[in-house]
């Protein structure tokens, strides 16, 4: 990867995903391994447009994870206190 701006974006994305992964229901190791594989799979990509698209996909995963955690918490509490 040549563009330093994109590079830092990718690193930030990776860090954020790892941070989110700490709460992953199947465990941190499970998440970290898969996250790493996903990043390594695209390590040789050079086309800037393509990298941008992949970053956007990563951001989407970020949002999905946040939504997943919120829903999981909400459902647990609802089950515990309202049923």
């Amino acid at each position: 990867m040549s563009n330093p701006k994109l590079r830092s974006q990718v690193i930030n994305l990776y860090k954020t995903l790892l941070y989110l992964g700490k709460e992953y229901p199947k465990g941190y190791t499970y998440f970290r391994d898969r996250c790493k594989t996903a990043f390594m799979k695209n390590k040789d990509k050079t086309d800037e447009e393509e990298i941008k698209m992949l970053i956007a996909r990563g951001k989407f995963v970020e949002k999905e994870l946040e939504a997943l955690y919120m829903l999981r918490k909400y459902r647990t509490l609802k089950k515990r206190y309202y049923e």
């Binding site: 860090k15 954020t16 919120m70 909400y74 609802k78 309202y82």
Partner: peptide, 13 residues
């Protein structure tokens, strides 16, 4: 109560 709102996630940054 539980249904007041949906709390946001405290992001890393």
């Amino acid at each position: 109560d539980l249904r007041l709102n949906e709390p946001r996630y405290a992001t890393l940054p």
